[in-house]
Design a protein around this nucleic acid. Structure first.
Lengths: 172, 172
DNA sequence: ATCCGCATGTAAGTGGTTACATGATTCG
DNA sequence: CGAATCATGTAACCACTTACATGCGGAT
């Protein structure tokens, strides 16, 4: 459900191929929703059979044909309905914290290296987000709201680093 | 994988029934890993067929029989191996942020009420976590590490509220 | 009497991941 | 000449959710 509506939302911004969508899920919306390409192609096909999107074949000039997907009127209605509906509950699943929870069964060195690995991954992610943020412009209201989800990601990554500092300080 | 190892970890702390495990997933580990009871019973059965846990029937004195699951030696080995392995990557999926991203398609009132609903849910969750935190004692290293995952949750909820403040301020 | 907590599970469906498979163009 | 990017998809599998189904004992 969420995935299909996110795809509709992206199609509402511009007509796209599955490949284009995949790039969005790796960049613009990736910080709050992950999606695999197999999943994207499957969902896109479903949207077409449901009449929420339709396909236009664009002959590739020196490239494969593009299956350009457009949102339909019914699609816009479905998108608006979903937007106004109660958000689905957020499912927590953090494999790193799962290891920390049983961290005492790990030696001190192994535990420190678990933290170090997580710190590095978090730092790299934060850097990438901050670079994207700096390159973005918030011209209108719509763009400002889209950017605020990135700010949300940045804020959470910063607090994750601060938490790591606190845990490491306690270890010392 | 993560779920089966988390279950092993909990069984290492004490022998338990599926029902007991469900309560843990609703409280102690719920803040970083959600699990449904159907999932728990299935995984528990799998652990037994894999020889990582075994069952002892305990006649219920004035209650149904308890299928008490114990971790085996092989189970402890599997748990230790998983703990030392690279953490699985964290998959981001946030239905609330998904709506914010397309928030401009929502009227101003509807958008504000989306934020208000999220604020209330976040506040309630934070209150619950802080109450749990206050009731907990961090006697030894193991307990301190377990508690630190709760602190992680608390820190993230606080930053979520701060982010909400910032977004609402920008709207005004 | 009725509801709540304890305790067990199954069945069907949806959603998500991994691996397989193909082929053209562009850039170094 | 080889690697990367664009572009499409299928098949098999695994994980997760929702709904259904049962029954006892203790408290109100």
């Amino acid at each position: 459900m969420v995935l299909s509506r996110l795809i509709l939302g992206l199609l509402a911004l511009a007509p796209m191929t599955g490949y284009d969508l995949k790039r969005h899920f790796d960049s613009t919306v990736g910080h709050f929703w992950a999606a695999d390409k197999a999943q994207i192609y499957r969902t896109l096909a479903q949207l077409v059979t449901d009449g929420l999107a339709d396909v236009e074949k664009v002959a590739g000039s020196g490239a494969p044909d593009r299956q350009e997907h457009h949102i339909t009127a019914a699609g816009r209605t479905a998108l608006a309905e979903w937007l106004a509906s109660e958000p689905e509950r957020h499912v927590e699943r953090d494999p790193f914290l799962a290891r920390v929870f049983f961290g005492a069964d790990l030696g001190d060195d192994a535990f420190r290296s678990l933290l170090a690995g997580h710190r590095e991954a978090t730092r790299a992610r934060l850097e990438r987000f901050e670079r994207t943020r700096a390159e973005s412009s918030a011209s209108d209201r719509a763009a400002r709201l889209r950017l605020s989800t990135l700010d949300n990601g940045i804020a959470h990554l910063r607090v994750e680093l601060a938490w790591l500092d606190a845990v490491e300080e306690e270890l010392a």
